[in-house]
């Protein structure tokens, strides 16, 4: 009796989590998928119309702008974060005095919510009173910096704020990676007389390839999900010029009574994430087992 209970207990403990997983993760994904095949607007209704919502979605100029924005955002956000993160990590790894304090400073934006970040940068980039005024007072009278109200450039204000928030994190994982590099390899290269920077480009960075890989996946994941920062920094504006997919989904599903379309956009986002994550998890797990 007692041992039967012991056998059962682990499964019993996992039962609530399993239930949640089946209903609130996979069940809900299925529900959203079904919804995306219907013409639901204010309320869910089950009139199936095939792929119409998806066709409508990719015909929607606002969605296409959101996708373009996501592309531009991903590219610059990831590139700048990696560059900054790698350089800071390598420099910090040169037996720097007060390394701890510097690290703390690079990472603190990570502790703050995107809404706070958006609010702060909205003020800093304020056309008229923000950076523009500062630079003008230094002496560049005709300096202009109005990306926030420029529909071509608004998306890049989001890049700036997001880089400020996330690059410290990239630094942290690269620093951890650098500390794990076998020191004898570096010493050997030094004895061979290789200049310092070459040791990094030829020896160290290639070893850190998996770290690059993880960093890119994580940053992509952050990018595809970004919602809060857009909402607080530009509100998707001017017009909808700085919208991203998550904001499109929210607006259509909750403010514009376009539930079916919103569900379709959510499914596209899911597939986007899966396309990034599944190969990553697969290779990670295979490496661990192999």
């Amino acid at each position: 009796m007692k041992s039967a209970l012991q056998q059962l207990l682990p499964k019993l403990v996992l039962a609530p989590t399993t239930l949640i997983l089946v209903v609130c993760v996979y069940g809900f994904i299925g529900w959203t998928a079904l919804l995306s095949f219907t013409k639901s607007r204010m309320m869910p209704q089950w009139d199936f119309i095939g792929l119409d919502q998806y066709i409508k979605l990719f015909d929607n100029p606002r969605w296409m702008v959101a996708l373009e924005n996501l592309g531009a955002f991903c590219f610059f956000f990831i590139l700048i974060c990696l560059l900054l993160g790698v350089v800071l990590a390598i420099f910090l790894d040169q037996k720097i005095r007060s390394e701890g304090a510097l690290r703390t400073i690079y990472l603190y934006p990570m502790a703050v919510s995107f809404i706070v970040t958006g609010t702060a940068w909205k003020w800093i980039l304020n056309p008229g009173l923000g950076i523009e005024k500062l630079i003008r007072e230094i002496g560049f009278q005709s300096f202009e910096f109005r990306w926030l109200i420029d529909s071509e450039m608004a998306i890049y204000t989001i890049v700036i704020a997001a880089v400020w928030q996330s690059s410290g994190f990239v630094m942290a994982i690269f620093l951890a990676g650098l500390r794990g590099v076998d020191e004898s390899l570096i010493n050997a290269a030094e004895i061979d007389g290789a200049p310092h920077y070459k040791i990094y480009t030829r020896v160290v960075l290639p070893i850190l390839r998996p770290v690059f890989f993880s960093a890119i996946v994580i940053l992509l994941h952050i990018a595809i999900k970004s919602f809060d920062l857009v909402q607080s920094l530009t509100g998707g504006g001017p017009g909808y010029s700085s919208d991203m997919p998550a904001n499109f989904m929210y607006t259509h599903a909750f403010n514009r009574a376009q539930m079916g379309l919103g569900a379709a956009s959510a499914m596209v986002m899911l597939f986007g994430i899966l396309a990034v994550i599944v190969p990553y998890l697969y290779s990670e797990l295979r490496e661990k087992n192999g």
Binding site: C24, I224, K225, P245, I273
Partner: peptide
């Protein structure tokens, strides 16, 4: 998963 996919249900 992007939470957008579970928001409605």
């Amino acid at each position: 998963i992007p939470f957008q996919v579970i928001l409605l249900p």
